[in-house]
């Protein structure tokens, strides 16, 4: 499996990563190489194998519906890049 430069741009956009034009050929090559490595998987017939999402065969534990958290927004927002009136600010979102 080999990617094109266009594929690289699409994936970078999907993952919201800015990548300079100069770096695209390198990514194209490296990502294609990794996909080449991964390609070995296709040689194995897995039609009867159930996918394994977790290493342990456990089921979800449930928490009691109790409020345990208190307000710490000042502490949490101390580390935020841009806050005003307790709101996180981002460039205007157009819906």
């Amino acid at each position: 499996m080999s990617l094109t430069q266009d594929d690289v741009k699409k994936i970078a956009h999907l993952a919201r990563l800015s990548i300079s034009e100069d770096d695209i050929p390198a990514y194209e090559k490296e990502l294609s190489n990794i996909l080449g490595l991964v390609e070995q998987m296709s040689a194995v017939d897995t039609s009867d194998v159930a996918p394994m999402a977790h290493p342990l065969d456990m089921v979800q534990r449930l928490r009691d519906d109790v409020v345990t958290e208190t307000d710490h927004h000042e502490q949490y927002q101390d580390i935020a890049p841009n806050v005003e009136n307790s709101l996180y600010l981002v460039p205007q979102v157009i819906e």
Binding site: R63, D64, V67, D71, H73, Y76
Partner: peptide, 30 residues
């Protein structure tokens, strides 16, 4: 375990899990 009460001042009911802080994990409400 953050409250769901409506109308609280902004971000006062968003705990580290709700904020998606690095390292936090979800546990499902019964």
């Amino acid at each position: 375990g953050a409250s769901t009460a409506y109308g609280a001042p902004a971000n006062t009911q968003a705990c580290v899990v709700d904020l998606g802080m690095p390292g936090v994990l979800p546990v499902l409400n019964h």
